[in-house]
Design a protein around this nucleic acid. Sequence first.
DNA 1: ATTACTTGTAATCATAGTAATTACAATTTA
DNA 2: TAAATTGTAATTACTATGATTACAAGTAAT
Lengths: 144, 144
Amino acid sequence: MSISSRFSVGIHILALIEINKNGISTSEFLAASVNTNPVVIRKIIGMLKNAGLVKARPGIAGAELAKELSDITLFDVYKAVNVVQEKELFTVHDNPNPECPVGRNIQKTIGPLFTSAQLAMEKVLKSLTLEDVVKDISTKENIC
Amino acid sequence: MSISSRFSVGIHILALIEINKNGISTSEFLAASVNTNPVVIRKIIGMLKNAGLVKARPGIAGAELAKELSDITLFDVYKAVNVVQEKELFTVHDNPNPECPVGRNIQKTIGPLFTSAQLAMEKVLKSLTLEDVVKDISTKENIC
DNA sequence: ATTACTTGTAATCATAGTAATTACAATTTA
DNA sequence: TAAATTGTAATTACTATGATTACAAGTAAT
């Protein structure tokens, strides 16, 4: 199991819109950088738009950021592209046997433990912003 | 996306083997509690066995714990049942365009960030043991 | 030794999510 | 009006999951 690449592609899109802010970031342009199909990009941009992270309008070429870079956390992107549902990073098997002491308690016992692990991961995503990503890319570019 | 229920089933199996330690935990018995097929249980027990967490032998009915409860962390189970690969909780899209500043850096920039988020989650799993799980189940049982 | 039971494993199947792709309506600009 | 772009729907191939059937191999009891 692995979390969908919509997340990494979403980050890629946002970073590139920023770095290309003097140009026009069409879905075709972004797709060429990500190396995928423009429709895939438009679908993800649609999700980023619903989350208020980018602006885009039918017929008008190019997407723009709707927020400051430092105001967009990786958690915002993660939620926007809908890769993991709340409290559902881990699956807990359903319908365990209620006539067994373990079966009738396992879900309520394991649930909070799994949630706390998920929250720890998400806390890290909340601490990171698109600005961190763009700065790191800029640094790597200057070195090369 | 959600992490396979092999993980929660693995925990269920280990907890039930402990709680049923005076009885014989056959795959059929365990399957009845989990509410799944005995073959699914045997496959997971095979993984737990490879990881040194349980003992089981062909022809001999019942699986037993191979370690103390307090010596088995949820991380041990998580690794045993192979639900998430190292550094691969998140997918990073491959083949981004090397002729774009973002494309040629995104993987090395995002990779460590994703890994740190994954490690934070795994750190929580390392802090929890099967003993915690069994104690919680026992507590819930006594109240009811 | 034969019978009954169990583990271990392979193979098959239905289902769900992913990512790529084609197609096209609706919108804007030149 | 023509060209370009966004936004969607529909289709396809692929992969992982979990359930299931089938069966070989091992063990224990009579």
